[in-house]
Design a protein around this nucleic acid. Structure first.
Length: 249
DNA sequence: CTCTAAATCAATA
DNA sequence: TATTGATTTAGAG
């Protein structure tokens, strides 16, 4: 009996929710995050059913991305071509599909307010990093140097570094088509590149390694302001990328 | 049957 | 592209 493949369902609607399909797409990517257009492409390429009525299901899928806390939107780095942000899976949402509920989960994945604020702080810091790309070239920090990036206060207290909610989270299954189509395959082992690999040293990983800046605990200054210290990547390709300069208004 | 996640329609930014 | 609300559909206990 042939192993179930991408064409298993043909033109029939696959028994997966948009959330499942999106998670599959994201997880199949090398960086574990994709722009919207790539999510579309994954689904239409792998499930022929979705090659028609695209306006309907793509609208629904976008609704899912915005509505569900399990998807986090990561700003595109200015040195990357293309449009739209990247979408990733929230690391705490990996066990959403326990007991094979790929159609309807028992519970929605909803973040607590404190977790949402923590994530907002991370993303705000990322947005600030992006802004460095747009500052005048003369005043941009040296690549390979360290830089302090102010964190906008979205709540008080803005950060809780001892929070362990996000610690030691790994997926219970891999979001490959093969493993999801035959979920009862018991001995399925994740390939190394499919395995979850936190990059931060303190294992409080929240954002994929896309930004390449190493996370450091926030610094509290005497004036009661918080900073994040990042190390700018020494990557050669980044050095070659033309730096963006804001037109002075 | 009930509960509520998921899908749909669609206005708006 | 992305967010949000309103409403309907339908999965599963």
């Amino acid at each position: 009996m042939p192993r179930p493949s991408r064409e298993t369902y043909g033109d029939q609607k696959p028994p997966y929710s948009y959330i499942s399909l999106t998670a599959m797409a994201i997880w199949s990517s090398p960086e574990k995050m994709l722009p919207l257009s790539e999510i579309y492409r994954f689904i239409t390429e792998n499930f022929p059913y979705y090659r028609r009525n695209t306006q309907r299901w793509q609208n629904s899928l976008r609704h899912n991305l915005s509505f569900n806390d399990c998807f986090i939107k990561i700003p595109r780095r200015p040195d990357r071509p293309g449009k739209g942000a990247y979408w990733a899976l929230h690391p705490a949402a990996f066990d959403m599909f326990e007991n094979g509920s790929l159609l309807r989960r028992r519970k929605r994945f909803k973040l607590m307010k404190s977790d949402k604020e923590m994530l907002d702080n991370e993303l705000a810091a990322l947005a600030n990093i992006n802004r460095f790309f747009f500052t005048p070239a003369e005043t941009q920090p040296e690549l390979g140097s360290s830089v302090q990036i102010p964190i906008p206060r979205v709540s008080s207290p803005p950060l809780n570094t001892t929070d362990t909610v996000l610690t030691n989270i790994r997926p219970k299954r891999s979001f490959t088509i093969e493993s999801l189509i035959s979920p009862d395959k018991p001995s399925h082992q994740d390939s190394p590149e499919q395995s979850f690999s936190p990059t931060s040293t303190n294992s409080q990983w929240t954002i994929p390694p896309y930004y390449d800046w190493r996370f450091k605990p926030p610094i509290l200054l005497p004036n009661n302001t918080y900073y994040h210290q990042y190390h700018l990547p020494p990557a050669e390709d980044l050095l070659r990328v033309p730096r963006f300069v804001l037109p002075s208004v």
